[in-house]
């Protein structure tokens, strides 16, 4: 009897919830939400936050070798922003009832995922350009849409992040543009980075719509507002002319403008590679996790010391 009342209550609440979503209302932390909505959001937000934090590593790899003081300052400010963005999103995700340290444990144990793009190595300075321009460019396309998603804390974090992230994209493109105006060696460096980062950037939008397992629910709940394929297409359409403007070749023989659809057509993405990297078999999966684990483990005594000090000096 009681069980039945609870179930009916849940059904009624879920209907109300769906109606609110359909009416374009924002869901706030203390609002009732279906457990699946909460779980999916937590999964998305913690993955997103982990991606920001792990994403610091490939760029950090060139920070101490930045070729000018200006570039060093810009790169450091950018990577610092990523730490900040991770923090904003963790903070938003915590409103769903899971502590940041718990999310970090899931990352370090390998249970939680992060964007597969950061499992590729940064091998020359132009990679800093390619990451800012392509990877952040793709992230911005994603995040601009997420800023309108139904969960308030996530949407607000995205608004803040989008505002800050525009310079990331621009500094990356500028690095590429300067290299393409530079010596032959610099141009080759830029093209090499382009060749390595183009396809993984396209994979950032996730599997094609037909194979995207969570998309249905997420779209219905307005957590996702546009499909993976649509966002990917938008990214390609805006990026190809940028590449052409500075003389970079897109490493795709099938790429061509279709005047009828007013979109670029492009070649087949290697989804087997994508799935492998996601499953942990990418060039840097092990390295990135090791770097995060080491930092966390080496920081333990520091966190412990500050907590001990605070406990000693807490007013009774």
């Amino acid at each position: 009897m009681n069980q039945q009342i609870i179930q009916e209550d849940d059904i009624r609440r879920e209907e109300e919830f769906n109606a609110r979503i359909a009416a374009g209302k924002t869901i706030e932390p203390k609002d009732w939400m279906p457990e699946r909505y909460r779980r999916q959001l937590l999964r998305m937000m913690s993955q997103h936050a982990h991606s920001e934090v792990v994403g610091m590593l490939p760029e950090g790899n060139w920070l101490t070798r930045a070729p000018s003081l200006m570039r060093k300052a810009v790169l450091l400010a950018k990577i610092q922003d990523e730490a900040g963005h991770g923090l904003y999103i963790y903070s938003g995700a915590e409103t769903l009832g899971t502590d940041r340290s718990e999310m970090i444990d899931q990352l370090l144990s390998g249970k939680a995922k992060y964007s597969s793009i950061f499992n590729y190595p940064t091998l020359n300075w132009a990679d800093m350009g390619a990451i800012g321009w392509l990877v952040d460019g793709a992230a911005i396309v994603n995040q601009t849409v997420l800023a309108k998603c139904s969960y308030g804390p996530y949407a607000r974090a995205m608004v803040r992040i989008c505002k800050e992230e525009n310079f990331h994209n621009k500094q990356g493109y500028q690095i590429m543009a300067v290299l393409m105006r530079g010596t032959k060696a610099q141009q080759e460096m830029a093209q090499d980075a382009m060749n390595r980062w183009w396809w993984p950037s396209l994979m950032m939008f996730g599997p094609p719509d037909k194979d995207s397992p969570n998309s249905g629910d997420l779209m219905r709940w307005k957590v996702k507002l546009q499909s993976n394929d649509d966002l990917r297409q938008r990214f390609i359409d805006r990026t190809v002319p940028q590449a052409e403007a500075i003389g970079l070749r897109i490493p795709d023989d099938k790429l061509k403008w279709n005047p009828q659809t007013r979109h670029y057509e492009f070649g087949e993405i290697n989804w087997e590679e994508f799935n492998n990297v996601i499953r942990g078999n990418g060039p840097c999966n092990k390295l990135r996790l090791k770097q995060r684990r080491d930092a966390h483990a080496e920081g333990n005594w520091v966190r412990e010391a500050a907590a001990a000090y605070a406990a000693k000096h807490a007013r009774a």
Partner: peptide, 14 residues
């Protein structure tokens, strides 16, 4: 710069 991405906690990294 060498600390960037390897700090004891995110806030301290920043």
């Amino acid at each position: 710069c060498e600390w960037c991405g390897h700090g004891p906690i995110l806030e301290e990294d920043i």
